[in-house]
Amino acid sequence: MEKNNTSDSSYDSRPSIAKQVVSVPKNDIEKKVPTAIQMTDGVLIPNKNDNHVFNSWRITFALAIVLLGSLVIFFPEPYRAIFLVVIKGAPTTFQVTILAILGAIFIGLFTGLGSVSKSRLVNMISGVYVEFIRGIPLLVQLIFIYYAMGRLFQIEGMSAAVAALSICFGAYMGEIVRAGIQAIPKGQMEAAIALGLSRGQAFRYIILPQTIKVVLPAIGNEFISMLKDSSLVSTIALSDILRKGREYISRTFLSLETMLIVALVYLVITLLLSRLVGMLEERLHRNG
């Protein structure tokens, strides 16, 4: 009997012990809510409110400037000579990038609108274009447009480079525009139509301005990615930064020194553009 009483008393005490073990304060549970992790294959635009990103950008930019300046100033042979040759390709790089980003935005706008269109045919055409272009590497598209289509349409180096970059990045830009439009609540379109606006007016004055704010960071990342991918135009004999460096290597065989200067020049330009895009985004949000 005593054994049974002991067993029963220990059994009755188990729920209280379990409660003590598994009970966790509510505040501790709320503090441990997992945060979402955002991933992107583009360049992270520095935000003034993000101290880690801004400090990382500032340190990286300072190191790049100090290293590039030290090599050019204190080691004129061969680094200053390399820099003076490589920097001559910067205008071509910027020209290709700016023209291509304008073309990509134009193509991406129509692709994004087609992706959200109620017409099944237009929607399907936009989807096929996006999937088709994203499945082919940019270098293959560039070579195909320059060598294959160049025979039919007499496309020159600059035109081929701009066309290839515009067509390739236009597919990605279309997905960005589509996501930006779908991020706007549908009730705003319905409210605008209820106030007497047509669908075109509602889109132009209500939806599109808000979409620009949503997609601007992604467009900035695509612009910076395009600047880096513009180095591929050196394969079709355009005298960009990389092409100038390769020509210098063919004359002097200083591959390590030349590629170091080319990499630092691209790094400085990319960091500057990422900061400018971040400032533009902050100003746009500040002005409403």
Rank of each mutant, 00 (worst) to 15 (best):
M1K: 14
K3M: 14
N4D: 12
T6H: 11
S7W: 12
R14G: 13
K26C: 09
I29N: 05
E30Q: 15
K31S: 11
V33D: 12
V43I: 11
V43P: 06
V43T: 13
V53G: 10
V53C: 11
I59G: 09
V66W: 06
V66D: 08
L67P: 06
G69A: 11
I73S: 10
F75S: 09
E77H: 13
A81V: 12
T92D: 13
F94S: 00
A104P: 04
A104M: 02
I105T: 12
S119F: 03
R120Q: 15
L121F: 15
I125Y: 10
S126K: 02
G127Q: 10
Y129C: 02
G135A: 00
L142R: 06
I143T: 10
I143P: 07
Y147M: 07
Y147R: 11
G150H: 06
L152E: 12
I155C: 01
E156W: 08
A164I: 07
F169L: 08
M173S: 06
I181H: 05
I184C: 02
G187M: 11
Q201C: 08
A202E: 04
P209Y: 08
V214E: 11
F223V: 05
I224S: 03
I224F: 10
L227K: 14
D229V: 10
L232G: 10
I236E: 01
A237S: 12
D240N: 04
R243H: 11
Y248T: 00
E257W: 07
T258Y: 05
V262L: 03
A263C: 07
V265M: 00
L267Q: 07
I269E: 01
I269S: 00
L272W: 11
R275T: 09
L276Q: 08
L276G: 04
E281C: 09
L284K: 13
